[in-house]
Write a protein that binds this DNA or RNA. Structure first.
Length: 329
RNA sequence: ACCGGCUUAGGCAUG
């Protein structure tokens, strides 16, 4: 049964919930793990009706499976079902509370999220992190920082996610002084050296404050740079008008063995268009499609049209608009 | 000792 449960999980993570369900059904004596793993398999694949029908079949619905389904409802944008389920749960643990807070936060309903946060009986770090990130992601960066301070005042232990959220809020405000301070606290706790996520958030923060040098310095110190940290640095160069350095970083990224994605290319094409690097723009558009097999998005085409327009090739620009696989806007 | 649910980093083409 352990093994079957692991298999269900594996198929779920591989985007094959039907096979997962098949294995699930073949287990003679399902335990609580079996059910929740199978429900999560559907949720992770965006199949909320599959998750729900499985949940309905469940003989005794526990907190974990209920929360898994709740998260599925939230991901599908069905907040009322999420809330109904939450209310129906006889036992609500902290994760259940955090999940319903996140559900409202993700849909921009901050006052509701805050009410639930305030009503959460036993808050843990994730509860605070959820709420801080909620403010920051909805543009209420001041409130995010305020809550960050309250969190430490109340003696709640922070973790690396707390710092990512707080540094993100500073980035949103271009608040260099606060950002530096929080960076130093995080660094002293060893979080910057140990977690790419924290370091990347710091890089982004400095870049948004216009401090490219500090951004680059922190970036260079990252061991195990990944797609996101590279893209952050590349975008930092682009935003600060350094197209050439962005292109250099792009090559360094490939040497480092990290494949760029659609977002990376958006920054690169944007750099080319901004700097009028006509040939580079086309070269990279070709790379995107041919070498990396990425499907160009509307944004990519807009960069290319802009690039053509800036270099005075209006007819070609027009032709591209007419032939691209999108409705021009 | 070992399986399940919550929060976190890159884009935002009117540059």
């Amino acid at each position: 049964r352990f093994l079957s449960n692991l298999l269900i999980q594996m198929y779920g993570k591989c985007g094959d919930p039907d096979t997962a369900l098949h294995i699930f059904d073949s287990i003679p004596h399902k335990n609580a793990f079996s059910w929740s793993i199978a429900i999560s398999a559907f949720v992770d694949n965006g199949n909320i009706s599959g998750a729900k029908s499985l949940f309905d079949r469940m003989p005794s619905k526990d907190t974990i499976s209920s929360t898994a389904l709740l998260v599925g409802f939230a991901a599908a944008g069905d907040l009322s079902s999420a809330m109904l389920l939450f209310q129906s749960m006889p036992v609500k643990d902290t994760i259940a509370w955090n999940s319903i807070i996140a559900a409202y936060a993700r849909h921009g309903q901050l006052p509701r999220a805050r009410e639930l946060f305030d009503a959460t009986p036993k808050k843990n770090s994730s509860s605070w992190n959820t709420m801080i990130a909620a403010y920051s992601q909805n543009g209420h960066c001041r409130a995010a920082l305020h809550l960050f301070r309250t969190m430490s005042n109340e003696g709640q232990r922070s973790d690396m996610v707390t710092f990512v959220a707080a540094i993100d809020a500073c980035a949103g405000l271009s608040a260099l002084v606060a950002g530096k301070l929080i960076h130093s606290i995080a660094a002293a706790a060893g979080l910057v050296a140990f977690h790419v996520e924290v370091a990347t958030a710091v890089v982004n923060m400095y870049a948004r404050c216009g401090h490219l040098g500090d951004a680059a310095e922190v970036f260079c110190g990252i061991r195990g740079k990944n797609l996101i940290s590279w893209s952050t640095m590349i975008n930092a160069f682009v935003q600060n008008g350094c197209a050439a350095r962005a292109l250099d970083a792009f090559y360094a990224m490939n040497v480092d063995g990290q494949a760029p994605d659609s977002v990376t290319f958006k920054s690169i094409l944007s750099a080319c268009s901004h700097a009028g690097l006509f040939d580079d723009g086309f070269l990279h558009f070709e790379l995107l499609v041919r070498d990396f097999g990425i499907v160009p998005t509307m944004d990519h085409f807009k960069c290319m049209v802009d690039l053509l327009g800036r270099s005075g090739r209006l007819e070609e620009a027009e032709e591209l608009v007419n032939t691209m696989p999108f409705v021009p806007d």
